[in-house]
Every structure is written in structure tokens, then in C-alpha cells.
Design a protein around this nucleic acid. Structure first.
Lengths: 357, 357
DNA sequence: GCGGCGTACTGTATCGATTTAGAGGGATCT
DNA sequence: AGATCCCTCTAAATCGATACAGTACGCCGC
């Protein structure tokens, strides 16, 4: 049988409490006794208080849960997500806390909810989940601190928020496009529709989009385009089945190969925008010349590809998320952090071509 | 006070056990009663059995711990690590298990050991830790299943292993280099010396290297070079302070800027090799022409950079690791998995230049 | 009418620690 | 000498659940 506190206590001839104190509160006993206890522990092969028992008793898990869309494995293929996690990990490490990646799936919602309910964590970080996903409700019920980068109408007012002004950012990006003279534009985004296939969709108004981030980003573009007198009905919208380069390219095909080709394509993420660039390259079209392209995030690859994009502080966002989660401030003002963004203009955007085709 | 099993049991008028069964063993009670219990739970805001209490009682945590060198955040900057994690995550998800990233640090070993001791997990995956790190011993003491990609003399024979034939792989890469006629070669690797700065080091024999993977990779090159009649004392070795592109470039500077410039540089990872390519570019030297470069891993960026490298199955390695961890086979033969590697020859290697400088 | 059996549920011990109040005893102060 | 205090250490309650043995009860067959 594996040794427990009791085993060690008996061996040394002290009480269980004293052994516990030896590990957790060195000031509660004499250094000699403490050393004697450690000695016995070593001899018996006792590796310190059992983490689960300790968690139960102290009512804290020493980990924060991170939710991700789609398969857990997907999280690692998005450079933006990776950066975000980096920041989060930094904060966590400072507090001797681990990161528990909670497997989430879009297909098997039951399993996803189960994972949330069973996660031994002190708080959750919601990274990117569509509004309708039941895991979000399951999290609420757990009653733990939650930091989210998105908002839903049904969210508890306790939910902490760390994000950016999504709509404001894309509004500025949209104005950049319209000032360059573009009037035939297309939008490519994930979660534009509830059904996740790559195909053109009709989005009567941004309010219809079922995922916060996409909704807000669309709203910004919608507003900017309207300001410039563009009829929303003329703006092509294509849903991408995933936030990946390949899906971006596939979505781009739907707008690039059709009669009046748009002169500008705005994408909701850099990964999608890079896919659009791939699609342009495949057709011999010059980015920023024949077709302007805008992304979002400013991942490292964006600079290399000369992609105009909205920069948001990925690592910082993760870091702040971690801080809020591990030590939630009481002051309501501090519970809602909006980080700055910046439009980074590169070569992928340029004046609208004067004559088409 | 938050509701517990007891609260719900009292509300419905049944025993605690029955409520527990309602969640964990639906076959133990009538569907009607089960529904009644869930109804009450919902009404009371009970979100299901407490994960920590459940973990304690069932003696299983529902998570596996992943250790990484250096700061936890570093894990995400290495594409190879990301791929590995992807595979691991896939296996874990299949068993409804989460991944707990256990913060490890090289500076604060105390904290690192503490993190290992406190991790509520069912097993550990050792990804890349220098042999001397005390966390490795701490893991042994925990007595949980461990899958490692490395071997130490002091490792318990129970340790599961998933890896590749490191020395065999670099031996083949080394022969590739010597067959191309290279005789002045340099080696760049991390953990070549115990002290982690970027600088030339003297490594009398591969056995002196304090980290399994580096030791084995060095051994392969050592053997290949000796086969070709190269004097080991003439092989320049440079330690890289980290497994990063920047460190690779910095290390390369030490060999490229010195009198008889090597005609080939072999690096222990693709990340380091990409750094070497950067260093070549900065000096106007042509890879595969003036200087040949070899990496290891075959990360996605390697193909884009035309880097000759050893391909090892990253995702697969993660996947197998997960399987072994969650369901350790009894058969000793299956507890030791060696995955295949392959030398991928690209443009970064070519015949040794006929005359120097 | 009684043994045998299956279903549906209960009671109790247990998982391994932490915490709080407090006991015992020597040193210090008055 | 007596009161006070501090320093160590102990005892008992508690954290929230699960496993297992056991009970109650209805039903079947002979």
C-alpha cells in the first residue's frame, strides 16, 4: 500500500497534523522534527501530500481550465491561439498553477459538457466557443471564476472579460478599404452560419451571426461599408468551415471565381487571410493590386506575407486573462479589460483597380 | 452554501448513494427516480459530483501531466512540440482525459519539483528534460505511469518509452554529409554542456553530454564522422542556449566567422538549423553550396526552407505516448516503442566545395 | 406457503489530507 | 509565586464523493 500522511506520522511517532504541517507550514514545528519527518518520508517512499486529497480539503485545484473549440488538438495549429496560451501560461506559472486543457468537441456536445463538469480547476478561460455551445452554460453552473473573450446575452454578470474592441477594430479596417476606393468587397469568416461548411451565406444583419467574435467583426465591416454607401446586399459573405489556411483558400475560391470579382476581401483572421493570399497566388492575382486582402490578429506569419491586418496583443491578452482568473478584482471596472488594437497596413492592400478584369 | 450530493439527496428524499448512482451508474436505479433527481439538482443549482472529491474517492484524476523544459510558455514556440502535443491531445480526448501542463523551470528547480508533486494526474509524460533535473526523480517517487522519450541510467524499469533511434538517425545523416565529401564539420546542439550559454564547447566523447536526446544525436554524428576518418577533435561543437532559431543563428556565428570555416553544419533540431540558415543568409553564404546544413524533426517550416533533415513522426509520437499512458500494456515488448525516422534530403545539403574560401 | 431470485435502494466505511481549537510545558515578566 | 505567553504539537471535525455489503420487497414456481 502506498504510504499516506498517517504512515509517516506513525513511523515518526507524531500526529498526522504535524506531518501535514511539515509540508505546508514549516513555521508550525521545529526544524529538527521537520527534518526527521522528511527523513522518514524519504525512507518510506512518501512523495508528499496527495494532490487530490489536498485539493478536496483546501477547495482549490491548482489549475485553470482552458476551453477550445473543435478538437483539443486544433488549438495548437492556430498561431494566435498559441501566443494567447503562452501569455496565459506565464501568468499561471507565476502562481504555481497549471493549465488544464479541457477537451471540447463541437460534434459530441455531451462529452464536452462532461469534460467541463469533471474538470478539477479553480477557474475557466473561455477562448473561442460559439454562443450556442452548452459547455458555456455548464461553466456558469460550476460557479467558478470565468474569463471570457466573448459575451453572450445570457452570461452571468460575474463573468470576467478580456478582449478588444472587435467591431471598432474592423470598422477602422473597413474604412481603410473604402478609402482606397474599393466598392466591391467580400467577407470571409468562420461561424458566420450555424452550419459549418465552406460556402457563400446570406447574413441579413450582423446580429444573425451565432458567435460573438465573428458577429462583432462583421458588425464593424458592415458599418464601415455602409458609411461608404455600399449596399450590404452586394457584399458577398462566405463561411469558412474552420479557422485554417486551407479553409480560407477554399472560401476565397467562392468569390474570386465569380463574375464581378470583388476588389477587396476582408477575412476575420490572419489564418483565413493567408488562405485568401494562397488562392490569389493560385490564380495569378496580385494582392494589394488586383485584390486587396485584410486579416485580423497579426500573427508572425502575417508580416512575412505582407498582410494588412489588425494587430491585437495576443500574449498580453493571455497574460491578463490569467491574472484576472487567479485573482479576480472586486472593482467592477477592473473586471472588464479592453486591450488596444492597431491597424497594420502592409502591401496586401492598395487602391482599388481603376477598371475591372 | 454550494449544494452537495447530500443536499440533493435530502431534497428528493433518497440516500446520497442513489444520487451518486444517478450520475455515475444509471443502471442502478429506475429512470423515473433518476429524472426526479436531475430535476432537483437543476432546481438547486447542483452541477454534478465535485471533481476533486470524485477524484479522491475513485483514485483517478482524469488528466495526464505534461512536463516541459524551461518556462511552460516556451513549449508553444517549438513547432515540433506543438505537433507532439497535438497527437497527445488526440489520444487523451478519446479517453475523456485532459492535459495538465505542469509548469517546469530550469532556474527554480524547487518550484518545478513542487509542481510535479502537486499535479493531480493519472500519469506523466516527460517530453524533454535534462537528465539532471530533480523533477524526473520526483516523478518516479509518485509511482504513476510515466512515458518518456528519453532514458536515464537511474530510471525505473517501469518507465514506458516512446521515441526514435536517435543515434541511428543522426548516423545516417552524418554519413550523408561525409559521402558528400565534407570533412570540416561543426555540430550545434542544445544541452551539450551543463551550463546553458551559447558558446563553443569541448565534448571529449558523446557520453559526457548531460541530456539523453542530445547525447544520442551527438553519438550518431560522432560515429559517422569517425567512420569517414574525421578526427573528433577537429569537429567544432557549439552549445545553443535554447532550442530556438535565434540561438541557432548565434551558435552558428561562432563557427562561420572563424578561420577554416566548416563546409557542413549539423544541428540537433530544425529550429536550430533554421537559425544556421539565417546566419548563412546574413553572411551571403549559400546553403548546400558554400555550407551544407542538416536539421532534425522535419517541422513544417523545414520544407519551406529546403532544409535537409531527419523526419520523425511528431503527431504519431504524441498519440502513442497518450495511448501507453492511459492504458499501459503488461507485455514488456509493448512498453518500449521505437518509431521510424527517415532522412529527408533537400537543397540545404550538397557536395563539399572543392576549394575553401 | 416457502425457498430462491432479481430489482431498487440504503448505510457505512473510506479516500488522504487540512484546519481549528486547544493541551502541555517551559520561559519570561511582575 | 503566580500570571502570562509562546512554542510545539495533538485531537477531532471536515472536505464531497464512491464502493460495497446489505436490506426490503415483489414475484415466480412448485
Amino acid at each position: 500500500m502506498r504510504p499516506t500522511l498517517q504512515t509517516v506520522a506513525d513511523a515518526v511517532g507524531v500526529s498526522r497534523s504535524t506531518v501535514s504541517n511539515a509540508y505546508g507550514r514549516p513555521d508550525q514545528l521545529s526544524p529538527e522534527l521537520r527534518e526527521k519527518i522528511f527523513e522518514a518520508a524519504r525512507r518510506l517512499g512518501y512523495s508528499g501530500p496527495d494532490p487530490m486529497a489536498r485539493s478536496l480539503r483546501r477547495r482549490q485545484a491548482g489549475a485553470i481550465g482552458v476551453l477550445f473549440t473543435a478538437t483539443l488538438s486544433y488549438a495548437f495549429t492556430d498561431p494566435y491561439a498559441v501566443q494567447f496560451l503562452r501569455g496565459l501560461a506565464e501568468s499561471a506559472q507565476r502562481q504555481e498553477t497549471g493549465l488544464l486543457l479541457v477537451p471540447q468537441s463541437l460534434e459530441d456536445e455531451e462529452a464536452a459538457v462532461g469534460a467541463v463538469r469533471n474538470a478539477a480547476v479553480d477557474g475557466f478561460c473561455v477562448y473561442c466557443m460559439p454562443d450556442w455551445h452548452p459547455s458555456l452554460d455548464a461553466i456558469q453552473v460550476r460557479g467558478l471564476p470565468v474569463v471570457s473573450g466573448q459575451r453572450r446575452a445570457t452570461d452571468s454578470p460575474d463573468t470576467l472579460y478580456v478582449g478588444v474592441d472587435e467591431a471598432g477594430s474592423t470598422r477602422i479596417a473597413g474604412r481603410h478599404i473604402t478609402r482606397l476606393g474599393h466598392r466591391r468587397v467580400a467577407v470571409i469568416g468562420d461561424y458566420l452560419s450555424h452550419d459549418g461548411s465552406t460556402r457563400p451565406v446570406t447574413v441579413p444583419t450582423p446580429d444573425d451571426v451565432p458567435y460573438f467574435v465573428s458577429r462583432e467583426r462583421l458588425r464593424g465591416y458592415h458599418d464601415a461599408f455602409r458609411e461608404a454607401g455600399i449596399d450590404w446586399a452586394d457584399v458577398a459573405a462566405v463561411n469558412a468551415e474552420a479557422n485554417s489556411r486551407a479553409a480560407g483558400a477554399a472560401a476565397a475560391a467562392h468569390v474570386l471565381d465569380r463574375a464581378p470579382r470583388p476588389t477587396a476581401v476582408v477575412a476575420f483572421t490572419d489564418l483565413l487571410a493567408l488562405g485568401v493570399l494562397d488562392a490569389l497566388a493560385a490564380r495569378g492575382l496580385r494582392p494589394g493590386h488586383d485584390v486587396s486582402v485584410v486579416g485580423f490578429d497579426d500573427i508572425p506569419e502575417a508580416a512575412a506575407a505582407s498582410l494588412t491586418t489588425v494587430r491585437q496583443p495576443a500574449v498580453e491578452r493571455g497574460r491578463v486573462t490569467g491574472q484576472l482568473l487567479l485573482d479576480p478584482p472586486d472593482n467592477p471596472a477592473e473586471r472588464h479589460v479592453v486591450l488596444p488594437t492597431e491597424l497594420v497596413v502592409r502591401a496586401s492592400t492598395g487602391p482599388a483597380p481603376t477598371r475591372s478584369e
